[in-house]
């Protein structure tokens, strides 16, 4: 496969502490290119913490400390010479609550390009904004009102705007932290369809509370659970079909079948 590495992101013995509290430990996860990987598990199991460590968003949390390695194409993102700002330009993020900037739809999408020192013409910027909005399946709904505030859109549209905003800087990986939890079922469906399309070009890692959602969209599923010290651990990881139909671990099966969580 023309030299493409087997995995885009790989964590090795990842442990994350908030102060003296160990949020998650011993996580070994490898994420393949152009797949959707779902991180599932009950509240507090550390799945969002793991997600945020993949593009160094945890750096912004006071007291957070990451041990172990997160390899991005084989290079450790937590090596001292790595710039967290550059990491986030290549590994984008979509958040739980739609958080468009209080700017126009156009400026929301152009923001990432502008801070990356966009030097092109107005026309080429327009083209990039349109491409990102098309990529997020939002173009047809907003093409006539690009100068309106992003906050005037519906919740589902806002979330797709946030996805478009992330796509505009052409990241390789998109991290999604429960992107549908604040949306109604129809908006959720649209986002899920969008994710399946985006998978052709991007690697997606999604945290979800919704097991059905993981079952619908994810190629791979990782199940997290906290141990007796309340530290999250990766219990089982594999193709989604296997995790859902033939889990190897009894705890996975108990969670999948809805016996707790």
């Amino acid at each position: 496969m023309n030299g493409e590495p087997a995995c885009v992101i790989e964590t090795r013995n990842l442990q994350i502490n908030y102060g003296s509290f160990c949020a998650v430990k011993g996580v070994n996860l490898s994420i393949e290119p152009r797949t959707i990987t779902a991180l599932i598990g009950p509240s507090g199991c550390g799945k969002s913490t793991v997600l945020r460590s993949l593009n160094r968003m945890n750096d912004l949390v006071p007291g957070a400390r990451v041990d172990g390695e997160v390899l991005f194409y084989g290079a450790n993102l937590y090596a001292p010479e790595v710039d967290a700002v550059q990491v986030r330009r290549r590994i984008g993020m979509v958040f739980q609550k739609p958080n468009p900037f209080p700017k126009s739809i156009y400026e929301n999408v152009a923001y990432g390009l502008r801070i990356n020192g966009w030097r092109g013409t107005k026309a080429s910027l327009d083209a990039r904004v349109e491409a990102a909005l098309r990529g997020a399946a939002l173009w047809d709904e907003v093409k006539d009102k690009l100068q309106q505030s992003g906050l005037a859109l519906s919740g589902g549209q806002q979330q797709r705007l946030c996805i478009a905003r992330a796509l505009a800087v052409e990241p390789e990986v998109i991290l999604m932290d429960e992107p549908c939890s604040a949306l109604d079922p129809i908006a959720t469906l649209k986002i899920e369809q969008l994710m399946s399309e985006l998978r052709q070009h991007y690697t997606i890692v999604i945290v979800t509370h919704n097991m059905q959602q993981a079952g619908r969209v994810a190629d791979y599923t990782a199940f997290f659970l906290m141990d007796h010290d309340r530290a999250g651990q990766l219990i089982e990881y594999g193709p989604t079909s296997q995790i859902f139909s033939h889990p190897r671990d009894a705890r996975t099966e108990a969670y999948i079948s809805g016996r707790f969580g």
Binding site: N55, M57, L60, V85, Q86, V87, R88, R89, R90, G92, M93, F95, K97, N99, P100, F101, P102, K103, Y111, G112, R114, I115, N116, C162, R165, A166, V169
Partner: peptide, 27 residues
């Protein structure tokens, strides 16, 4: 200004200064 806006900006690879000047300050 809600932290969600800061996180969105950081998540796009903005520095603290860019986030402060282009997102937080206008908001």
């Amino acid at each position: 200004v809600p932290d969600g806006l800061r996180n969105a900006s950081f998540g796009l690879g903005a520095t603290r200064w860019e986030t402060a000047i282009k997102v937080v300050f206008p908001a």
